[in-house]
Design a binder for these strands. Structure first.
Lengths: 221, 221
DNA sequence: TGTACATCAGTGAACGCGCGTTCACTGATGTAC
DNA sequence: TGTACATCAGTGAACGCGCGTTCACTGATGTAC
């Protein structure tokens, strides 16, 4: 299981720990990203992790970012060959939910990692960081750091394409984004860790398709 | 803090522990419902809890049920005096989100309590139990145990009222429920423990109102 | 080209924490006769 | 009405767990001269 190292120095321990964290998160979500276990799997002392991450939370954040990247990539892959802007938007929704159902652990760590829920008082920032911004409703949105294919960016792109096609008023982009994101995120959450969790996959897929169609119809109406 | 008991027998330890659990959940969500702390606050030995709950999970489930009751009650309260079916639906959506923003800890425990997310394989049941059923899409739905004012029931009632008013086809009830529930739940989740968590309350409220209006428009279109 | 030395990436053992849970037990309560 | 006794609701101490984190340390690497 543990690849025995022949060198004292690991080479790329940072990446190796994130990869191990992804494996852990895949099976058990954010709470399963255990620092000791990640180092164990990497064949390294627990202490070694602190050379690369300030604490466990920093590791979990890195894993969350990586999971979000995977999500973006998966959604993007579902869009290949699609040019019609309406279909493009539909694929964002389908891809978002499909990823959550296919990889509930990664979906979990991507969105439920650090901030278990916002406690009392106002938060320090804007949550997870790399997938924020859409729908903040105040002027041009700063691009998220690094994540080119972040789900929220893909959603935004699809909506922009609708605007270009004359199928959506520019002033409707933000509300539309809000409705679409809330809709698919809510369904994904209800289906992976909520009351819908027990339903068979086929039923969830059918419901998801209908939901996405309704959302798209609501937006392009 | 701890009310000193004068009797050896507590009286209603079951309820007292759930109440203590609600206090804990209110501040820190599901993960803060700690059995030992609940007994401490009740002025009772940790062991005593096992006379009333099989294990910690059973306690958390009871707290989740109580929190869901509070949620239903809050939504119901927001509907007082409202008779127009469209407004009725709107109030369900507003109330759902408002409760999540007002009581993120209770919202958390109500929906994210036991099943952190559905692990590998098919689940044993249908999730949280008392708020399931809408949108399962197969015939008449068994009434949830006890929770008369469960949020999903209030949503269903509002949609039924729209049907009675001739504003919604009966075959559209389930899809509409799916879209509404997903929409408000998603927004509530993004706002309390997701990327929208850092936004000021006023911005969230404004966005929520717009979202609910859009959802209602999408349903009654 | 060789050597001194600063720098960096690891080691291995240990600590304290708070938790859920279990042990054998005792104090209070209510019912049968 | 009093007493024996089953039943139930608590006690108090302890256990083991696995975690995140810290200690002083050593092995490997690369750069200056």
């Amino acid at each position: 299981m543990v690849p025995a190292r022949d060198t004292y120095h690991h080479g790329d321990l940072h990446r190796a720990l994130v990869d191990a964290g992804l494996d852990l998160a895949r099976v058990g979500g954010a709470k399963s990203v255990v620092l000791r276990e990640a180092t164990r799997r990497t064949g390294v002392t627990a202490r070694a992790a602190y050379r690369h991450f300030a604490d466990r939370e920093a590791l979990v954040r890195a894993v969350a970012r990586a999971a979000l990247d995977h999500m973006g990539t998966a959604i993007l892959a579902g869009q290949t060959g699609v040019t019609d802007p309406v279909d493009l938007l539909r694929e964002v929704g389908r891809g978002y939910i499909a990823f959550a159902l296919d990889e509930p652990g990664w979906f979990d760590v991507a969105f439920f990692a650090v901030r278990e829920f916002v406690g009392s008082g106002s938060g320090t920032g804007s949550g997870i960081g790399s997938d924020t911004g859409i729908g903040s409703g105040v002027g041009p949105v700063a691009p998220p750091a690094g994540a080119e294919a972040a789900p929220s960016r893909l959603l935004r792109s699809a909506l922009d394409a609708l605007v270009d096609a004359g199928m959506l008023g520019p002033e409707r982009v933000l509300p539309a984004a809000s409705m679409c994101w809330s809709g698919v995120h809510g369904f994904a959450t209800l289906a992976t860790r909520g009351p819908l969790a027990g339903l068979p996959r086929s039923a969830l897929d059918a419901q998801a398709d209908r939901l996405v169609d309704d959302l798209v119809a609501g937006v392009t109406r």
